[in-house]
């Protein structure tokens, strides 16, 4: 069973935009975004600079909010537990 499907499944794993379309329902098929692929990017060709930008922005938000929550909201409140 598993050897039968092995070849097929390996093919299935590769994005294959030139694959002839089987019978598809009318309209957008969920999960068909790979059909819009214009170019293949390998691991070495791909530089996630956008991700770095987003995650750096997230880092800054986290730090600012943490400092605000800890030192202003928390330590700035009355009846702090001291013992």
């Amino acid at each position: 069973m598993s050897t039968d499907t092995e070849g097929e499944s390996l093919a299935r794993r590769e994005p294959d935009t030139a694959r002839p379309e089987p019978e598809r329902p009318y309209g957008y098929v969920v999960g068909s975004a790979p059909d819009g692929v214009e170019r293949e990017l390998s691991h070495d060709e791909f530089d996630p600079v956008g991700t770095l930008t987003l995650i750096f922005a997230y880092f800054v938000i986290l730090v600012v909010m943490w400092v605000f929550m800890y030192f202003v909201e928390f330590l700035g409140r009355g009846l702090t537990v001291v013992g």
């Binding site: 409140r77 009355g78 009846l79 702090t80 537990v81 001291v82 013992g83």
Partner: peptide
């Protein structure tokens, strides 16, 4: 609206000190 906040569990005593 303050940091004085604790659980009250039967059999246990929660102790904490605040300054008014």
């Amino acid at each position: 609206g303050t940091n004085a906040n604790t659980m009250a569990i039967p059999g246990q005593v929660s102790t904490f000190t605040v300054e008014t």
